[in-house]
Write a protein that binds this DNA or RNA. Sequence first.
DNA 1: CATGTAAATGTTATATTATTACATAGCGTT
DNA 2: AACGCTATGTAATAATATAACATTTACATG
Lengths: 132, 132
Amino acid sequence: MQKQQTLSRNQKIIFDLIDKSPEPMKAYSILFNVQKKGIKAPLQVYRALDKLIEIGKIHKIESRNAFIACQNSSCQISKATAFSICESCENVSEISNSKLSKYLSNFSDDSGMKYSKYNLEFFGLCKKCKSK
Amino acid sequence: MQKQQTLSRNQKIIFDLIDKSPEPMKAYSILFNVQKKGIKAPLQVYRALDKLIEIGKIHKIESRNAFIACQNSSCQISKATAFSICESCENVSEISNSKLSKYLSNFSDDSGMKYSKYNLEFFGLCKKCKSK
DNA sequence: CATGTAAATGTTATATTATTACATAGCGTT
DNA sequence: AACGCTATGTAATAATATAACATTTACATG
C-alpha cells in the first residue's frame, strides 16, 4: 500500500481535470480549462504536472506530449509504464500486464547498466479503427 | 538486405552530422551546425529529420526531443526501438537485443489491438556515473 | 525530348511546448 | 517567532515544431 499524498489546490484541480478526461490532455489545453479556476499561467500547470508525475498520479505520453491519469489503482508504477496508442484515433490506454512489467523490470543487457525506470509505447490501430 | 536509400543533399548533410555526434542531437543544435552549409530554417531540418526517421537512418529519443543515428547496421527496426538512457550524463545508446525485440514484437494483450510499432526507453545510471 | 508527377527545397510567419527568474504565501516544526 | 520546505503568482522568454505558399529537382514514361 502506498502512502496517500495530499494534493494541493492547484494539483487537485489539474488532476481532477485529467482524471475525468477520456483522452490524454495537452498542457495548454489543461491551462485553458482551468483558467476559470484561477490558474492563469503555463508554469502553474507544469509545476502541478511535474508533481503529479512524481507521485505517480499521472503519466506523460512522451510521443504525444500529453498527460493521462494513472489507470492502475494500486499504482506506484510511475517508474514502469507501458501504453498502447492508436495511431488513427489517438486513443491511449495504459497497459497493465504483470508478465510484461516483470520482464522489463528484470531486463538487463551487457552494458553494465542497471535500469531503474522504463517507458514503453506501443503503436497500432485499435479495434474500432481497424474495422473501418 | 534492405534497399539502399539515396539521401538528398539536405538529408545527407543532416544525417552525417547526427551520425558523427557521440550523443543525441537536438533539432536546433542541428540547425545551428548546418547553417554554414546553407540550411537556414527549422523546417528544412525537421523535414530531413522526418525523412531520415521514416527510412530508419535515425531515431528520435522521445523523452529528450533528440535524434540519434541508428546503430544497427542491418537496420529496418525503425518500428521497434529500444534505448538506454543515463539520467546523469544523458548518454544514450540503442539496445540491440534479439530476445527483447522478439518479446516486444510478439507482445499482445487482451485489448484486441495489433501493435505494429513500439518504442522503449530505459533509464538508469551508466557504469561511469554509477561509480562516481 | 517533352511532359507529368512525386519528392525535395526555400522562405516567412506562427503555433506549441516548456523553463528561467524573481517575489510572495502557507504550513508544520522547533 | 524563526526556520525550512512546499506551493503559489507573475512576467518574460526559450525551445520545439508546424502551417502555408512558392519554386525547383529528379526521374519515369509517352
